[in-house]
Simulated scan of single mutants.
Amino acid sequence: MPTEKLLCEKFGVSRAVIREAISRLKADGCVTTRQGSGAYVAARPGQGSFRLLHGPSPSATIPTDEISNVFELRCLVETGAAERAALRRTPADLARMREALARMDDALATESDAVGDDDAFHVAIAAATHNPHIERFQAFMGRQFSDSRAPTWSGEGHRSGRVRQAQAEHARIFDAIACGDADAARTAAQTHLVCAARRLGLDPLRWGNERLEWAP
């Protein structure tokens, strides 16, 4: 790519603007940078990284369709992880999940935010699969999934009862995993995601899976 100086002259902007643009292109996997050499168009643009789209800026309103797509992705990832965790969990894995649940219980009692603990609970489930790729994927995507959990742990989420409902669903997922019941764990995880989506006014049936119809 042209040097920062040439790009500044061409577009009439400061170096800070050019550097921010290149940083975003790099985050999207469209360019690579080499120390002392400059920026280069990636050989396979967009395939070197993955992130969920949240609009043109962090403060932008996320479209409803995009939130629904996030929940569909969460359903695919988290139901499979719960199922395998039930088959492979160890006492240490259960202790890790139990600790995250306890922190969320405290947040429920004090009406405080526990998005991070919610993330930690789901990462603990992924870790219990003892497949490092599943755990790493869940940890990476946890930063993306956090936005979809935030409304539950907001002040409105506490006042409306969303937090209490979600925590009861978390407990059912944990109980199924602790009992080693893979089918129940998968069902509990699916029910949690379907109910969470509906609490936010989304329609899980648009995911195209008729088996979701039974979920309360």
Score class of each variant (00 low, 15 high):
Trp153Cys: 11
Gly180Asn: 12
His192Ala: 10
Ala184Thr: 14
Arg198Glu: 11
Gly161Asn: 08
Gly157Pro: 03
Gln165Ser: 07
His158Tyr: 06
Ala196His: 15
Ala182Ile: 03
Ser146Ile: 00
Asp175Pro: 03
Pro151Phe: 01
Arg164Ile: 00
Ser148His: 05
Gln144His: 03
Pro151Thr: 07
Ala196Cys: 10
Arg162Gln: 02
Arg186His: 12
Val163Met: 07
Ala178Asp: 13
Gly201Arg: 08
Ala150Lys: 12
Thr187Cys: 02
Asp175Thr: 14
Gln167Tyr: 10
His192Gly: 02
Gln190Pro: 01
Gly142Trp: 01
Ala176Pro: 01
Ser160Asn: 12
Asp175Gly: 00
Asp181His: 13
Gly157Arg: 05
Val163Ser: 02
Thr187Asn: 10
Asp175Glu: 14
Gln165Met: 06
Ala171Asp: 06
Asp147Phe: 14
Arg199Glu: 06
Gly201Phe: 08
Arg149Val: 01
Arg159Ile: 05
Ala185Cys: 04
Arg199Trp: 13
Ala185Thr: 07
Gly201Met: 07
Arg199Ser: 05
Glu169Arg: 04
His158Thr: 01
Arg164Asn: 02
Arg149Gln: 11
Asp147Leu: 11
Leu200Asn: 14
Ser146Phe: 00
Trp153Gln: 02
Ile173His: 07
Arg143Gly: 12
Val194Asp: 00
Leu193Tyr: 05
Val194Arg: 03
Met141Phe: 13
Ala185Lys: 02
Arg162Ala: 09
Gly142Ile: 05
Ala178Thr: 09
Arg149Thr: 00
Ala196Tyr: 03
Ala176Gln: 05
Ala185Tyr: 11
Ser146Glu: 11
Ile173Asn: 03
Gln165Asn: 04
Ala197Val: 04
Arg172Glu: 14
Val163Gln: 06
Gly161Trp: 04
Ala166Asn: 12
Asp147Trp: 14
Ala166Gln: 03
Gly157Ala: 06
Ala150Val: 09
Ser154Trp: 06
Arg162Cys: 00
Ala178Leu: 09
Gln190Ile: 08
Arg162Gly: 04
Ala171Gly: 06
His158Leu: 02
Phe145Gln: 06
Leu193Trp: 10
Thr187Asp: 14
Ser160His: 10
Arg162Pro: 00
Ala197Lys: 03
Arg199His: 08
Gln167Ile: 14
Thr191Tyr: 08
Gln165Val: 07
Ala150Trp: 01
Arg172Trp: 04
Ile173Leu: 03
Arg164Leu: 04
Ser146Tyr: 01
Gly157His: 10
Leu200Asp: 15
Arg162Trp: 08
Ala196Gly: 15
Ala168Ser: 12
Ser160Ala: 13
Ser148Gly: 02
Ala176Gly: 08
Gly180Arg: 09
Ser148Pro: 08
Cys195Tyr: 00
Val163Pro: 01
Arg143Gln: 07
Asp183Gln: 13
Ala196Thr: 15
Gln190Tyr: 04
His192Arg: 11
Cys195Glu: 14
Trp153Lys: 06
Gly161Thr: 04
Gln144Ala: 15
Gln167Glu: 07
Gln190Arg: 12
Asp183Tyr: 06
Phe174Met: 08
Asp175Ala: 15
Cys195Gly: 03
Ala171Met: 11
Pro151Glu: 10
Arg186Lys: 15
Phe174Leu: 10
Pro151Leu: 00
Phe145Leu: 02
Gly161Ile: 05
Ala188Val: 14
Arg164Ala: 14
Leu193Asn: 08
Ala197Thr: 11
Arg199Pro: 01
Asp175Leu: 02
Ala178Arg: 15
Ala150Asp: 02
Ser154Arg: 07
Arg149Lys: 10
Cys195Ile: 05
Val163Leu: 00
Phe145Met: 09
Arg149Ser: 00
Thr187Leu: 08
Ile173Lys: 11
Arg198Tyr: 04
